[in-house]
Amino acid sequence: MSTWILRIWLGLVLLFVFMPIIFSVVFSFNSDRFPTIPLGHFTLHWYQTIWADPDVWTAARNSVIVSLSTCVLATMLGFCTAYTDYRYNFRLKGAYLALILLPPTIPLIILALAMLAWLSKIGASGQLWSIIIAHTVLTAPFAMAIIRLRLNQIDQDLEAAGWNLGASEWVALRAVVLPFCRPAIVSALCLTAAISFDEFAVAWYVGGLNKTIPVLILEIVQGNIDPQVNSIGSFVFLTSMTLVVLAQLLVFNRVMWRSA
């Protein structure tokens, strides 16, 4: 009986979590500028508006550039750190790991201010690549965590077996470690791209006039109630979810392990 109460409780938690997501999709097809119950009629008006808006297109292009560059850089950083942590022990390793892993524990707005000030100081703010730098720092820990978890499963002898069969350290890395980590690397690429694609505080601060999609949303929301936000949001949701589902499939689906 108490299991039923718990089950209903979990249902309520999920309802709370998903209500804003579901409603934002619903509102994006709803004719009312300010939706309530009962809903207005079905419309594609808001989608047509954003389709015709050049600002949205520019922002989308920026977002794609930023998230693609970020995911590649962050995954490289994450891999190097995960591999170093897996393979080596050294003095100050704790400090080394903290240096990589701490960014997500610092509130974004603080990171945004610090990045803005520092990048302005060294003349690197206000550019699209300023956002890429900041997002790489921000998302690399996630890539590191995913790849490190995969390296936990590697047989300690596997890399040594590569050396033993004639592979130098670099070759064994390419021929043994990288193929072993492939599913995790693809997951890390997807997840870091998705995080970067949604991040607004840091992008808003360091990007100057270069707006990404979330920054555009932020500015629209600051203005007034505009259901365009919902249609952009639904579009962003679809993109991120594709990336996440892809990442999940690669983690859980062993068929994808097969090397080409």
Binding site: D155, Q156, D157, L158, A160, A161, V176, P179, F180, W257
Partner: peptide, 8 residues
Amino acid sequence: SLALFPFL
């Protein structure tokens, strides 16, 4: 552990 390469 044999250390066979699982991805090959």
